[in-house]
């Protein structure tokens, strides 16, 4: 009884239950909807999860430190448009340079957010609500009502999202999804096993204590925002590759989708707990439910937002209520043992 309690933490049960929910949803939809478990559904879900999932990794880093980044949607849109315009102007630009440009532009925007939050001590919600508008303004002025079209881009950009990397049975893994999975694995490792990663958790669980313990709180929060911006920039490149046609409203609303993925994925909005893997599962579950419910109930696309809002609320509520209950359950034997020792 005690041994498995020591091995599994309540947070891990949260992620296991998420996997369980995904499996149940897959079984129910597969049973109820004809041709649901097909290569096409798999493709559609993995391609859209690739972009939101990439943004959600960065969002997780920021939310872990008890902050939030609402400007990621504007960063995705700006980098997608900016890199698209540069590629259209210089079609000979090597792919690595284009990706590096996207990451750099995103990183610069993240740096601006991070400096204001970490050194200017402006709450993250205010800063990023402001930069959400500012970055979008930059994009609209830069775009000047023009559109990036597929024809103007070098062919490798659009090809990237259509190629097949490897096939497992009928299911084809696209490069975009593979890039996001690699990023998730890298950051799962960074969060779990590096000094920087553990500092993010320490700062999120108790900023005061982290400061008194001598952790470089300001630098770490700044780094989290810069990384979040860089990942959003990379997501902007994926966005360009997936859609090809980019307008000034590109990426609008991704900030909410990424926050939703992170929250449903079990990352605590008060910071200090959650994983990148959970956020990816959250993004996956949201998209699966969105696709499945729309087709199963035969309801229109307009139901999507209402369902998303409900899902976020349920996730936050179950986090607060169920995790609290689980933690008490976990703590109970320890208290009993202590009481026994006193006697």
């Amino acid at each position: 009884m005690n041994s498995w309690r020591q091995r599994i933490r309540p947070e891990q049960i949260r992620e296991l239950s998420l996997v369980g929910l995904i499996v149940i949803a897959l079984l129910v939809f597969g049973w109820q909807i004809e041709n649901f478990l097909s290569a096409r559904t798999f493709n559609r879900i993995t391609t859209s999860v690739a972009i939101v999932g990439m943004v959600a990794i960065g969002q997780t880093l920021v939310v872990l430190t008890r902050n939030i980044d609402l400007s990621v949607g504007s960063i995705v849109g700006f980098t997608a448009y900016f890199v698209g315009a540069q590629l259209a102007a210089n079609p000979t630009m090597p792919p690595a340079a284009a990706v590096a440009l996207a990451v750099l532009v995103g990183g610069a925007m993240g740096l601006f957010n991070g400096v204001i939050v970490a050194y200017g001590r402006v709450p993250a919600i205010i800063t990023t609500l402001g930069t959400l508008a500012i970055y979008r303004m930059l994009l609209i002025n830069y775009a000047n009502a023009r559109t990036i079209t597929v024809d103007s881009l070098p062919s490798w950009v659009v090809e990237l999202s259509r190629q097949t990397l490897l096939t497992i049975g009928d299911f084809a893994v696209r490069p975009l999804f593979a890039i996001t999975i690699i990023a998730v694995i890298v950051f799962q490792f960074v969060l779990g096993y590096t000094i920087f990663g553990r500092r993010l958790y320490a700062i999120g669980s108790n900023p005061e204590a982290a400061r008194f313990a001598g952790l470089p709180v300001q630098q770490t929060v700044l780094a989290a925002f810069v990384l979040c911006g860089m990942l959003a920039g990379l997501a902007g490149f994926l966005f360009l590759s997936r859609f090809g046609n980019i307008t000034a409203v590109a990426g609008q609303g991704i900030e909410l989708e990424s926050v939703a993925a992170v929250v449903v994925g079990g990352v605590n909005t008060f910071g200090g707990s959650g994983t990148v893997f959970g956020a990816l599962l959250g993004a996956f579950l949201i998209d699966l439910l969105g696709q499945g419910l729309l087709r199963w109930l035969g309801i229109s696309e307009f139901w999507r937002d209402a369902l998303l809002g409900l899902l976020i609320l349920l996730a936050v509520a179950s986090d607060s209520v169920i995790l609290g209950w689980l933690r008490r359950l976990w703590a109970a034997p320890a208290v009993r043992v202590e009481a026994g020792n006193e006697r």
Binding site: I125, A260, D305, I312, L313
Partner: peptide, 11 residues
């Protein structure tokens, strides 16, 4: 923040 964010999307 979380509740009204859900409300912002849901409503």
């Amino acid at each position: 923040l979380a509740v009204t964010l859900a409300g912002m999307i849901g409503f």
